[in-house]
């Protein structure tokens, strides 16, 4: 069944990629077009090409929906690729930046810097990255230093994740205004995100994605296991470290403007691998697009479901992501488990 699907996709490879790109574009357009205020297609077009920047409709498109769509696309792509990389590097299909506590350690960094230096917002992506890096290295140390099993690593990640989340709660309790710039930080959301706020994180994400894509071959070799990778001439430790740094940069940058989005890093790579197999270049490319589509669609749902009220996207992600993940897990039973 799996094999059939893989071979049929191999046959229609170019169709698959064209479809995915079109779907991404369509999602982006839909996300910019739709919202609690009705804006016509002409108005959207006029605003996007710069013909009209002053009308209310144009301002909604340019200063609310466009940044929000960009944020959703970027966060989705970053978290999905971060998850794909972490899963391969730790050789653990249950790992993701959310599960092993990388998101929450990045979040703690963001909360701390917002509380201590509210004016230093430019640096939040960097601090989030450092926080994420600390989380990732902690897990790497745990999984390699002790030779712990995959399940132990995941459980340790859950513990670490809870610890950092408690830290975030502590900061929010003590300095209630700390995260006012980012509403819905704990569950994750894009309300009020601006292009200016997004820019540094966006560069970090795009740069990291570009580097990760050039390392797909290294990921392929790493996936064969550490001994085989070394006997094929790879210096496993530095490569693994570099990849985790990139995964941390991706997750950290996403957390810096979107908060703690759950499930994206876990289910998007899973879904992509089920369809495409485990060659990393196509998996990474499809994770970029698929992650963007998934988060943007969820955000769209979050905006229109109870319009004019908005849900944080994190809630929709959890409500769609959790059942989907359970379905994936249960389907796997009897497969390659």
């Amino acid at each position: 069944m799996n094999n059939l699907r893989i071979s049929s996709i191999r046959k229609h490879k170019s169709l698959f990629w064209i479809g995915l790109c079109l779907l991404t574009l369509l999602t982006a357009i839909l996300s910019i077009w739709t919202g609690s205020v009705n804006v016509s297609a002409q108005q959207v077009f006029a605003a996007l090409i710069g013909q009209d920047t002053t009308s209310t409709a144009a301002r909604i498109v340019l200063f609310t929906r466009l940044p929000r769509t960009c944020a959703a696309m970027l966060a989705g792509a970053a978290l999905a690729v971060s998850g794909a990389v972490i899963q391969t590097v730790l050789n653990n299909p249950l790992a993701s930046p959310g599960v092993i506590g990388v998101n929450s350690s990045a979040g703690l960094g963001v909360a701390l810097v917002c509380a201590a230096a509210p004016t230093a917002q430019r640096f939040t992506p960097l601090v989030a990255f450092l926080g994420a890096l600390a989380g990732v290295l902690l897990i790497l140390g745990l999984s390699q230093g002790t030779g712990a099993s995959r399940m132990t690593v995941v459980l340790a990640g859950v513990a670490i994740s809870n610890l950092f989340s408690a830290g975030i709660d502590g900061v929010i309790t003590l300095v209630p205004d700390a995260l006012n710039g980012i509403t819905d930080f704990r569950i994750g959301g894009f309300t009020g995100v601006t292009m200016r706020q997004l820019a540094p994180a966006a560069w970090m994400i795009l740069g990291s994605l570009a580097i990760v894509l050039t390392l797909s071959q290294q990921l392929d070799i790493l996936a064969l296991g550490s001994d085989t990778a070394q006997s094929l001439g790879m210096s496993v430790k530095p490569v693994r470290f570099l990849l985790l740094v990139l995964a941390a940069a991706l997750a950290g940058a996403a957390v810096s403007f979107a908060g703690l989005l759950s499930f994206v890093g876990l289910i998007v790579p899973h879904a992509v691998r089920r369809i495409l197999g485990e060659d990393n270049l196509p998996v990474l490319a499809a994770s970029i697009l698929g992650g963007g589509i998934f988060v943007t669609l969820c955000d769209l749902l979050a905006r229109v479901l109870f319009a004019p009220f908005e849900l944080p996207v994190g809630i929709v992600l959890a409500f769609t992501g959790a059942p989907f993940f359970l379905w994936l897990l249960l389907r796997q039973k009897g497969g390659r488990g």
């Binding site: 064969l224 296991g225 197999g277 485990e278």
Partner: peptide, 22 residues
């Protein structure tokens, strides 16, 4: 260099990962 070792000796390991690839 590890790469040069890999050009002189190959290793069929005892336990292996089986990623879903062709």
């Amino acid at each position: 260099k590890r790469k040069h070792v890999a050009q002189k000796a190959a290793f069929l390991t005892q336990s292996r990962n089986t990623p879903s690839i062709l």
